[in-house]
Structure formats: C-alpha cells, structure tokens
Amino acid sequence: MTTSLLIVQILNGLQFGILLFLVAAGLTLVFGVMDFINLAHGVQYMLGAYLAVTFVGLTGSFVLGLALALAAALLIGLALEFLVFRHLYERDHLDQVLATFGLILLLNQGVKMVWGAAPLSVPVPAFLSGSVPLMDGILYPTYRFALIGAGLAVGALLWFIVEKTRTGMLLRAGASNPSMVSALGVDIRKLFMIVFAFGTMLAGFAGAMAAPILSVEPGMGDTVLILAFVVIVVGGIGSIRGAFVGALIVGLVDTLGRSFMNDLLRLFMSAPSARATGAALSSMLIYLVMAMVLFVRPEGLLPAKGRS
C-alpha cells in the first residue's frame, strides 16, 4: 500500500460521500421537516440522470442540459407532490412507505417505456474531461474533482440557507416541532412544498452529476436510496450537517474498506480466505458502522436540535 494509492482512495471516498450527501440531504430534509418517508427519493435521483441524458443530448451542452434537467426534475417533483405526496402527509408511515414504494415500481417501469431498458450514458463535458496528475504519475479524473467541488458548493449553499435565512429558520423550527410552527401562523403547506421541491432538485442534481460516471439504467436509484437511508441514520434525521458528516463517513468507510480490507486481512490469514472474508466484510462494513452508531448514539451523530 503506497501513499499515493491511499490519497487516491481517500479522494474516491470523498467523491462517493459527496454524491451520497446530495441524495441524503433532500431525503433528510423531507423526512425531518415533514415527517414523511419518501422511498421515491431514489427514483427522483434516477429521473435526474435520465433527464440529463435527454437534455445534454438535445442541447449538446452539459451545463445547459444540466440546467434544463434540473428544471424538469423540479416540475416532475411538484407534479408528484400535487398528485400523490400531498395526500399522504396526514397518513401514518406505513401508508407513506406503501404509496412511495408503488411509485418506485411505477417510475422504474415508466422510465423503461420512455428510454428503453438498455443502460444509457452522458459523455463527460469536454472542459472537464481528462485527468489531473497527482504525485508519481497517478492520475485522477478532472470530472471527479468537479463533482467534489460542486457537492461542497451545494453543501455550503444549504448551510447558508438553513442557518442564515428566514426560510431556513422555519425549516429548522419545522424539523423540531412542526405543529408549533403551524400554530404560530406559518403556512405549513407552503413550507412543505418548498422543502419538497428543494429535496427533489437535490436528488435530480445528484443524478445528473452522477450520469457521466455511472451507467444510467432503470433501478439505479434503488441502491442509492438504501445508502442514503444509512447516511441519515448515521448522521441524524433531519440534520443537514448530520447528512454531510454521515455521507462522508459512509463514502470513506465503503471505499477504503473495499480497497484495503484484503491487504489488512492478509496480514494474519491466508490469501484465499482473506479474499473471501474481505469481500464479505467490506460490503457489510457501512452497515456495521450504522449498527454501532445506533448502539452508541441512537439519535445519530449530529441530530437536528430539539428532536427526540
């Protein structure tokens, strides 16, 4: 194991964590503020990627395509809110899980009817293609640096909105005690819609940004959704800071575990058994972390204030 490999793997872990943060931030907002379990968040990530495929293809420009994809993702999100989610806010969690799980099936199948079942892709934009040389000839793709940068920028923007603006204050209040916020005369429905629209945009943005490095295919959101839930459980429900920290932990643990677990185990067992144990252990590592967090701090590492 060399230092440069370690650095590359830490970058990979960061970049994976940032991607998870973008998805988890929306999920945790919607869950935290609205107490609404939105399993369809993963398919909104998928829709973002598919819309990016279409609009980047149509316009020939990544930036323009991204902007249009975000707008379209927002529109679809609002339509879903109006048609489906709005009627579920008052219902219990089981109803929400069932209805949004139905949406997963519907949208996965719908995507297949519109775009076909075969995986699609978005080319890396020309100005971000190529790679940056790190030390001793190890290259790191420029696009992944851009992804890390974009994620950090979105994180900073979110922090600013949540901590420094009036809407953010209402959000934090809503996450702590929604009925009190409503009693104080805040239009909670409008607040919910803003939160939801924002969450959808974030998921769509994550999907569109992931499209150039990942295969765009039906069901691509399902694995991300599971990881995003791990992130918000680790970080603390309803907390943007928690989502950020949780996402980085999950990203780094998963990536570093996958790359160094075998070498680590080989120090004290034979190569074939290290391989078998390493593969099994590294794929469950993040769930072990989640179990540990739940055991030590059941409310997550950085929970939203006032939430029990």
Binding site: L5, V8, Q9, N12, G13, Q15, F16, I138, R144, I213, L214, S215, M220, T223, V224, T255, L256, R258, S259
Partner: peptide, 8 residues
C-alpha cells in the same frame, strides 16, 4: 456503482 477504488 463506483469502481474508482478498484481502478486506482
């Protein structure tokens, strides 16, 4: 989804 660590 991401093979970056294997590729590195």
């Amino acid at each position: 989804m991401d093979f970056a660590s294997d590729i590195a």
